[in-house]
């Protein structure tokens, strides 16, 4: 794979497309403007894939977590947390790099040939923490703490932020005119967020993943000890800097190869001319 970054990117894009089709395989939903209602929706998928997408066959883990936490009966979700931990330890942010449909969308948007921008390093460093705030406050705390008179909470991230849900809604609204009658301020707000993410994705690589995605924030917690690990061999490195130049998440590959920001896209590995970067999946049998 090393030395063939373009070939690697083509393969990665194909895997991303296959994953998007796999998680959204209910083609009839797009034709009818309805969503899938089968039992597989009981299972969480590893990616940010709104369950209101007409094709969705499983449940979005972030939406599911908020739904359980905001329900009358529960204040903690063993079920969704179990799925998140399992995906986190088995795949980690490999999900972001290879499986997430919203990641694919941002990657494709970034291919649009417009002048690319670099976010100021200080601003970037601060904004990177925003996704952890989103996870802690909008996904966990507010759904548990703020309740209405029926003792029900709200899905704050889904309602006010999630652009994947807005995108899913657009295809539903196009096919289902009765839903269009309920459009209001909230839809305009969410459309603004979606447009900001879409436009900024053409200028900056994966802005939603870098700054807002609570799922990426959670999976990042497993980067240092998950089953999928990146390895950097400093004895082979010639210091050419190609790996760091290629990295879409601006990870300092030579210093922190298993950074929580790394989406395991493998661009660093593919671009390294001396094979100084490798990856392994599974249990370790020797200290590195």
């Amino acid at each position: 794979m090393a030395g063939k970054p373009l070939e690697h990117e083509k393969k990665r894009t194909l895997v991303q497309i296959a994953a998007t089709v796999f998680f959204n395989g209910y083609a009839m939903g797009f034709a009818k403007g309805q969503i899938f209602k089968g039992k597989t929706k009981m299972l969480c998928v590893p990616v940010l894939n709104c369950y209101s997408c007409p094709g969705a066959l499983g449940a979005c883990p972030i939406g599911s977590l908020q739904s359980v936490l905001s329900s009358r009966k529960f204040r903690f979700s063993f079920y969704v947390l179990g799925f998140l931990m399992l995906f986190g330890i088995l795949l980690g942010r490999l999900v972001c790099g290879f499986l997430c449909p919203f990641g694919l969308l941002q990657d494709l948007l970034h291919k649009i040939p417009v002048k690319k921008r670099k976010v100021n390093a200080k601003v970037d460093r601060v904004l990177r923490y925003l996704k952890y705030v989103v996870l802690a406050v909008l996904v966990i705390l507010l759904p548990i703490m703020i309740r209405d008179e029926m003792n029900m909470g709200d899905t704050w991230f889904c309602r006010y932020i999630c652009p994947a849900g807005t995108l899913a809604g657009l295809s539903l609204l196009a096919m289902n005119p009765t839903l269009s009658s309920a459009l209001g301020f909230l839809f305009s707000w969410k459309m603004c967020i979606l447009l900001i993410v879409v436009i900024s994705s053409t200028l900056v690589h994966r802005p939603f993943c870098k700054y807002l995605c609570p799922l990426g924030a959670f999976y990042g917690l497993f980067s240092k000890f998950g089953l999928y690990q990146m390895h950097f061999d400093s004895s082979k490195c010639t210091g050419c800097g190609k790996c760091e130049k290629e990295c879409p998440m601006d990870v300092r590959c030579t210093q922190d190869i298993n950074s929580a920001e790394c989406i395991r896209c493998g661009k660093c590995k593919a671009s390294c001319p001396v094979h100084a970067i490798t990856s392994t999946f599974g249990f370790d049998f020797k200290d590195r």
Binding site: Y51, A56, A59, F74, R159, G165, T166, A168, F187, K190
Partner: peptide, 19 residues
């Protein structure tokens, strides 16, 4: 808890799509 997830996931989520 799985039932809560299923009941939410098989109905159109108005909050998610901005309605």
């Amino acid at each position: 808890e799985a039932n809560v997830v299923l009941s939410k996931a098989k109905a159109i989520c108005f909050a998610c799509i901005g309605l």
